[in-house]
């Protein structure tokens, strides 16, 4: 499931380095306190969320930061 991020988040992400060509690996903090770790954003604009977070909208996002999980899927 891909969410299109608002300009505020795009701007923030463009000020952060990429993780690889065309993408960033990020952690997403939600209003309800849940943290979604190690998900991808493409072109600083499209956030890919796991199916388990299907109901999440951009209004639920409190913060997006670069993920501390390493780039290759291993914690």
């Amino acid at each position: 499931m891909k969410l299109r991020l608002s300009k505020v988040w795009v701007k923030k992400l463009l000020n952060l380095p990429e993780t690889g060509m065309g993408y960033q690996k990020v952690d997403v903090l939600l209003k309800d306190g849940r943290k979604i770790e190690g998900v991808f954003v493409y072109n600083a604009e499209f956030l890919e969320l796991p199916e388990a977070y299907q109901g999440v909208t951009i209004n639920d996002i409190v913060d997006i930061t670069l993920s501390k999980i390493n780039d290759f899927g291993n914690n």
């Binding site: 795009v10 952060l16 380095p17 990429e18 065309g22 493409y42 072109n43 600083a44």
Partner: peptide
């Protein structure tokens, strides 16, 4: 730079690359 996006946002409007671009 290979991209799935024609409007690749890491390319600045002035034709440069943003810091931290692969």
């Amino acid at each position: 730079r290979f991209s799935a996006f024609k409007n690749d946002k890491r390319i600045t409007p002035e034709g440069g690359l943003l810091p931290g671009t692969y």
